[in-house]
Computed example of a mutant assay.
Amino acid sequence: MPKSWLILLALVWLTGCVSVPDELSYEPESALLPYSTVSQHPDSAKGQPVRWSGVIAATRVLAEQTELEVVLLPLKANGVPQQQEKSEGRFLAHLPGLLDPSLYAPGRSVTVLGTIAGTVNGKIGEQSYRFVLVAGSAHKLWPQVKDVEVRYVNGCFEPLWLSPRPRPLP
């Protein structure tokens, strides 16, 4: 009997590790619309809740809000955008107040919780594009992923942190 309790406790603990942060939670989860549904019928989705994530393409500070242009990426179980080379599209998120463009810079990962406010015609480069507009109520800017430096020494793969002593670079 105690062994089964330990297994159950471990499962509950692990489930807690992959949950969405409180500021991005929404109940019921099943009410959140996917991008594919909204992009096909944006007018019928007005006012419906969404939680979308992606990589910031542009940040524009407006009079009383900040507009993020986001390249959509699928969400992992914990709300973090899943990095991949393919996207279903882009969306605009209007978030209240000033979000510093130096921090909310292109390439940063973000997740937005809000409701569909309609569509906006715009451009990506020189091409016309119809953006889905999200009126954001909450968001999370995710920490930047740091690259790990790996060097090749004498043609062999040997990460620096595993080297027993420093070696000169070729």
Rank of each mutant, 00 (worst) to 15 (best):
M1C: 09
K3E: 01
K3Y: 08
S4V: 15
S4F: 15
W5Y: 14
V12E: 00
W13L: 12
G16E: 08
C17G: 12
V18L: 09
V20G: 00
D22Q: 11
L24E: 01
L24R: 04
S25P: 03
S25L: 15
E27I: 13
P28M: 10
P28Q: 07
A31W: 09
L33D: 00
P34F: 08
Y35M: 06
S36A: 14
S36G: 05
D43P: 01
K46E: 02
K46S: 02
G47M: 06
G47I: 06
G54M: 03
V55P: 00
A58M: 06
A58G: 03
T59V: 07
L62Y: 10
T66L: 10
L72M: 02
P74D: 01
L75I: 08
K76Y: 04
K76D: 02
Q82K: 11
Q82M: 09
E85W: 15
E85Q: 14
G89E: 02
L98Y: 15
L99A: 07
L99P: 06
L103E: 06
G107K: 08
V110F: 10
V110I: 15
V112L: 06
V112R: 05
T115R: 12
I116A: 00
T119F: 06
G125E: 08
R130F: 06
F131G: 00
V132N: 01
H139Y: 14
W142A: 08
Q144C: 05
Q144N: 08
Q144S: 10
V145M: 02
K146E: 07
D147C: 13
V150S: 03
R151Y: 07
V153H: 05
N154C: 10
G155D: 08
P159F: 07
W161N: 03
P166Y: 10
R167I: 11
R167E: 01
P170M: 06
